[in-house]
Nucleic acid binder design. Structure first.
Length: 167
DNA sequence: TTAGTGATATCC
DNA sequence: GATATCACTAAA
C-alpha cells in the first residue's frame, strides 16, 4: 500500500482523474474505494469554477498539485476536489463517489469532511490522503453532470470516469 | 418533480 | 446592502 505523492498529482487532470478511480481515500481511519471522478481543466474549460477568473473562492485551484479544494454546494453539501497540474494552472479532479456512498455530497458526509479541510494538502495531511493498494479495474467514461451553465462543447466532453468492473 | 440550504459573486 | 446562482439530495 502506497500513499500517492506530489508527482502523481503533478500531471494533467485528464491523466490523474482516471487513475484515481479504484484508489483508496483515507480519512481519520476510514478507507473508501473511489468509484467516480471528474476532471476540470483550467480557465478554458467553461465548466471549471476558474473559467470566470481568479477569485477568493477559486484561488485554491491555482495552488500546487495535491491541494484539497472543498466547496459548499446548495447550502448543504461539501464537494471535494484535488488540485492537479502546475501551480497557477487551475485544474483539478472532483471526487464524485466511492463504492460505499454514491454522490459527492454523501461521500464527504460519510467521511466527515467539511470546509475545514479546504486548502489542505492530500500529500502531507496527517489524516486525509489517497493510497494505492494495487487494485486494478476497468473504467468507463461519460459526460460530466450538473454543469448546465457550461458551453455545449464542454458539456459534451467525456471527462467523467466511472469504475466499471473489478478484475 | 420539487423544496431545502447557505457561501459566494454580482449587482445596485 | 440585496439578490441570483449553484460540480446536490431526499422525499414524493
Amino acid at each position: 500500500m502506497k500513499r500517492l505523492d506530489y508527482d502523481f498529482f503533478h500531471r494533467h487532470a485528464l491523466e490523474v482523474a482516471p487513475e484515481l478511480v479504484g484508489k483508496l481515500l483515507v480519512h481519520n481511519g476510514q478507507m473508501l474505494r473511489i468509484s467516480e471522478t471528474e476532471a476540470y481543466c483550467g480557465e478554458t474549460d467553461t465548466a471549471c469554477h476558474a473559467s470566470k477568473g481568479r477569485t477568493k473562492r477559486t484561488e485554491v485551484l491555482y495552488m500546487e498539485a495535491g491541494t484539497i479544494y472543498i466547496y459548499l454546494c446548495y447550502g448543504m453539501h461539501w464537494l471535494m476536489n484535488v488540485i492537479t497540474g502546475d501551480a497557477d494552472d487551475p485544474q483539478g479532479v472532483l471526487i464524485r463517489a466511492c463504492v460505499e456512498a454514491n454522490g459527492p455530497g454523501k461521500l464527504t458526509k460519510h467521511l466527515g469532511i467539511t470546509g475545514v479541510q479546504n486548502r489542505g494538502s492530500i500529500v502531507t495531511s496527517p489524516d486525509l490522503w489517497i493510497a494505492d493498494d494495487g487494485f486494478r479495474c476497468s473504467i468507463r467514461t461519460d459526460k460530466r453532470v450538473g454543469i448546465g451553465y457550461a458551453s455545449e462543447e464542454d458539456q459534451a466532453k467525456h471527462w467523467r470516469f466511472i469504475l466499471d468492473q473489478y478484475e
